[in-house]
Simulated assay, not measured.
Amino acid sequence: MTMDIWSALILGIIEGLTEFLPVSSTGHMILMADLLNLSGDKVKTFEIVVQLGAVLAVAVLYWRKYVDMLRNWKKGRSSAARLSLVHLMLAMIPAVVIGLALHSLIKTYLFGSETVLIGLVAGGVLMIIAERLGKKVTAETVDDISYRQAFGIGLFQCLALWPGFSRSGSTISGGMLLGTSQKAAAEFTFLVSVPIMFAASGLDLYKSRELLSIADTGFFLTGLASSFIVGLLAVVTFMKLIKKIRLSWFAYYRFVIAILYFIFVVR
Rank of each mutant, 00 (worst) to 15 (best):
V125W: 07
V58H: 07
A8P: 02
L191P: 04
L203F: 09
V86D: 06
T222C: 05
V235S: 03
T26F: 10
T26H: 04
A258F: 14
E15A: 11
F219L: 08
M176C: 08
L70F: 15
L205A: 03
L233W: 15
M239A: 09
L126K: 11
L90T: 04
I106N: 02
G134M: 00
V49P: 01
L100W: 07
K243C: 13
I48C: 05
F190A: 06
Y261H: 10
G152Q: 10
K44E: 13
K240T: 07
A101D: 05
T180Q: 09
G76W: 07
I48P: 01
V230N: 08
L9S: 03
T115L: 08
F250S: 14
A258V: 10
A8L: 03
G119M: 02
A251E: 04
A160Y: 04
V266D: 12
V49A: 14
S25I: 00
L56W: 06
H28Y: 01
L100V: 13
M29F: 05
K75G: 11
Y147G: 13
M3Q: 10
R167Q: 01
A139W: 03
M29Y: 04
G174L: 06
S113K: 15
L70D: 10
Q51Y: 06
G154P: 08
H28G: 02
D68W: 05
V23S: 06
F165D: 00
L117W: 08
K183G: 10
L212N: 05
Q51S: 05
G164V: 06
M176Q: 05
E210M: 01
V50I: 10
M1V: 10
L120N: 09
I93N: 12
A150L: 02
F219M: 08
V23W: 03
S24H: 14
P22F: 02
M89Q: 05
R77W: 13
H103M: 02
G231L: 00
R82I: 04
E19K: 12
L120H: 11
K136Q: 10
F250T: 13
G218D: 14
R167Y: 06
L61R: 12
E19H: 08
F46Q: 07
F156P: 07
L232I: 15
V23G: 08
T180S: 14
G99K: 09
C158T: 15
I10L: 15
G27W: 00
T108K: 15
L224M: 04
F46H: 07
S78T: 12
L61Q: 08
P195W: 05
S208H: 08
D41C: 03
G231F: 01
L17H: 05
L52H: 07
Q182I: 07
Y109M: 01
L120S: 06
T180P: 14
M69K: 01
I13Q: 11
F228Y: 00
R267Y: 09
I229N: 02
